[in-house]
Design a protein around this nucleic acid. Structure first.
Lengths: 329, 329
DNA sequence: CTGAAAGCGCTTACAG
DNA sequence: CTGAAAGCGCTTACAG
């Protein structure tokens, strides 16, 4: 490996000067600069980032903590993050918690030891151990998807998105609306979206039947099972519409309904949230909510960059959403 | 930040000893070890990876270069890579070329300057500049999906997978088989899969019509357009089956066929490659080939780790595949 | 405009 | 079993 010393020797200057030329810091005469740059070019010299990082305490690397790499949502967000960051010369150090809360905390520490300049966390839960770990890390930090106390958070408007969806079903004349949610450990998806559903039904004077409410775990299969349970448990009065808090679960529900010979939306309307690629191509196409995840990723990266530049940013930034009406309702 | 010196001071030993205790290298008396570990625990000390990396020339980071972050294939592969690497204490530094060949090379250099221990590239093309850049980097390197000359490559069996698919269509009685491919700049997807299609038709004495062959760019939309062209250009004798080299393009083709009132598979059979999630849930479900991308990612990580341990590995490792017959044929 | 020197936080021969 | 010293490749006051 060629080092800055090699370059200095070849250019017959001190390494101080080479460093200045390379970083455009301080004065370097035009002559010398050209001489240095030529040699850099020829040798293909690349400064050691470890040495730089050790010295400057900056790495131009941002840590990203994901709950799962294999979901469309996560991929889109990372895509947006990367788009903005790469342009600024930052790279992403990627970690995947596989939905393990301990790993969330472990990775925060690990990323810190790797001298990342900041961390973006796609959060799925909120707990004290987590917020504490974030405080301790004492690093520019951004949470996406969950509002973490005392942490800059970029959140989706889960409550209103869900309420809009429920209201839309009501306006379409549905009076019996089922619900497929997820664990309330997830404040955004599990609590807010469910609360909005309950509130909307209440506000419209519609009945809330426990038998019409089931929980899944984000997977297609769990949506399938939830739908099965709802149909089984609600013998006489079945819902005429069911609303799942994620597209995947909605698609699972549709699968079961199709198997049972239900026509969608005639016998049962179905809606989801997430605007997955699949939602568009499945038959019938799925009514859903677009959260613009990629844009969220971009925004997150921009906010983090702002923080790195010591700009003040708000603690809670809310994103907008868009209802997509299709054939499943 | 606490450093190794702080720990040494607190434990009243030299930093040499702390280092030994931390890395289990050399002798440290049980007493001293415990004393050190206790302090490490209490302070939450984490060694600086930059300093370590500068000193040891190892970073425990592996660079991954992707053509696109937002495809299922890439995501699955990264998932598999991460699964294996994370267990060994490695992190992934992620880069996305956005299908730009120059970036491929740029990122190889960049990753090297960041002292990654090795690089895994999901290649989409093969050219001299690329293989040269890899040689110059002089780093443990692994290519997935394309065979790069002189570079350890983990490849899918594109030829036989494609031939099997074509043969299957022939056995089902199809005599007029159309094809939606991609640019031949991509040796694996663009050349091998097409060659297998052509060879299979020839071997079975079936006609090859130029009008039945179109190219897309991996997107659903391009599959849609390709199907449209095939139908337009082949006025009298239309194919009875069409085979796309990716699921996305197959799904695009199905979209167009459905719009035009074609029944699938009665009027036109459709097949793809990739075993995307969507292929299972679209109507009719899509016949496709499963390349086990996640397993490929795992395997790639294992091979790279082997290389890092100076084990010899073969230059070309071929993966197997599995035909999934469903309702679209 | 340029350079000598110190130091970032580690590890590793070497000596004892 | 333990420590002093050198050095990894940079940047940055400081001095000139």
């Amino acid at each position: 490996m060629t080092t800055i010393n090699d370059i200095a020797e070849m250019a017959k200057v001190s390494r101080t000067t080479v460093s200045r030329a390379l970083n455009d810091s301080g004065y370097v005469s035009e002559d010398v600069r050209k001489r240095i740059m030529k040699i850099v070019e020829e040798t293909g010299y690349l400064p050691s980032q470890s040495a730089k990082s050790l010295r400057t305490k900056r790495s131009n690397v941002v840590g990203v903590i994901l709950p799962r790499l294999s979901t469309e949502t996560a991929t889109r967000v990372v895509n947006g993050i990367n788009e903005v960051l790469a342009k600024q010369g930052f790279q992403i150090l990627l970690t995947d918690t596989e939905l393990d809360k301990n790993k969330e905390i472990e990775y925060i520490r690990l990323l810190k030891s790797r001298h990342v300049d900041g961390i973006i966390l796609l959060a799925t839960n909120v707990n004290d151990a987590l917020t504490q770990a974030i405080q301790q890390a004492d690093l520019p930090f951004l949470s996406i998807g969950q509002q973490l106390p005392g942490v800059a958070s970029l959140v989706y408007d889960d409550y209103h998105a869900s309420a809009d969806l429920a209201n839309m079903l009501v306006h379409r004349g549905h009076k019996r609306i089922g619900f497929i949610g997820v664990s309330e450990e997830d404040p955004a998806v599990g609590q807010l979206r469910q609360q909005a559903y309950l509130d909307t039904l209440k506000q419209n004077g519609l009945p809330i039947h426990k038998e019409w409410i089931e929980k899944g775990d984000f997977t297609i299969e769990s949506g399938y099972e939830a739908m099965k349970k709802i149909l089984r448990n609600s013998k006489d009065v079945k819902p005429s519409a069911v609303f799942a808090v994620t597209d995947r679960m909605a698609i699972g529900a549709m699968e079961y309904l199709k198997e049972q010979g239900y026509l969608i939306p005639e016998h049962m309307a179905v809606a989801g949230i997430g605007a997955s690629l699949m939602s568009k191509y499945i038959t019938p196409s799925l009514t859903t909510v677009d959260y613009s995840n990629k844009e969220a990723g971009r925004k997150a990266a921009e906010l983090l960059l702002a923080k790195l530049n010591h700009e003040e940013i708000e603690d809670k930034i809310e994103l907008s959403y868009r209802l997509i009406q299709r054939d499943s309702v």
